[in-house]
Simulated scan of single mutants.
Amino acid sequence: MGHVLARLVGYGVALTPYWPYTFERSGVAADAVVVTNWGATGPAEALVDPADAHSVPGIVDVEPGPDHRFWAIETSSFIAAWPSGFSVESTLDPFCLVGEHDASISVQGPVRLADPDSMIAPGQTVVARRTMGPGVQVIELAYEHEGQRWWQGVYLYPRTDGRVLVVTAQSREPGIPAARRGVEWMLALA
């Protein structure tokens, strides 16, 4: 189908995947990435080591990029750190992060949001409200789904034009700490 609006940048390179795709950290080296294209003919993978990175047609284009020593997810609207323990998938626009215990982190916006409580769905209970970093409002919610306890954190990251990035993290009970750490580390760069 072609390129998507999210790419991975760091270690001197920019990785632009072909849709549909997944980025996963490789066990080969701390900075190596496995890029999978989920095309009509089945999955096709490329291992990208920044020390010897090159494009793989139909899977990923590799170009020079920022030289910071971490991976970041870059879109036309924002840049966010890629938290460890999560893969980057093209299942939502512009991407979704997926981890253990059905943990996920997704980003919407920037959008205008008159009432942050509009993010609370029926059946969810507010367990905490707080502010972190540069004015990021956080609403932490608890709910049950299919007999299991879940946590959801809604993080409203303010932009300069009055809009917010809505970053939503959620997980079943065992993955709550990892999901919370992941989204908060991710927002440190946004």
Rank of each mutant, 00 (worst) to 15 (best):
Asp31Gly: 07
Val48Thr: 03
Thr168Arg: 14
Arg130His: 12
Arg149Leu: 14
Ala53Lys: 09
Met186Ala: 05
Thr160Arg: 14
Pro158Met: 10
Ser171Val: 03
Asp49Met: 08
Pro134Phe: 14
Glu173Asn: 12
Leu47Val: 03
Pro50Phe: 00
Leu156Phe: 10
Ala190Leu: 14
Glu89Val: 14
Asp117Met: 12
Leu92Glu: 15
Ala14Val: 09
Ile120Gln: 05
Val4Ser: 12
Pro122Asp: 13
Pro57Cys: 08
Thr22Ser: 12
Gln152Phe: 03
Trp151Ile: 12
Glu146Asn: 10
His68Asp: 12
Asp115Pro: 06
Thr125Ile: 08
Arg112His: 15
Ala6Glu: 10
Val28Arg: 11
Ala46Pro: 00
Arg129Asp: 04
Gly58Pro: 12
Pro57His: 06
Tyr143Asn: 11
Gly65Trp: 02
Gly133Lys: 12
Ala29Phe: 04
Val166Arg: 07
Tyr18Asn: 09
His101Ser: 14
Asp102Tyr: 09
Tyr143Met: 13
Val154Glu: 02
Pro116His: 06
Ala72Glu: 13
Leu97Pro: 00
Val60Ala: 03
Val126Leu: 07
Ser87Gly: 10
Ala40Pro: 10
Glu100Met: 12
Gly162Ser: 09
Leu8Ala: 02
Pro66Ala: 14
Ile79Met: 15
Gln152His: 09
Gln108Pro: 03
Met119Arg: 15
His101Gln: 11
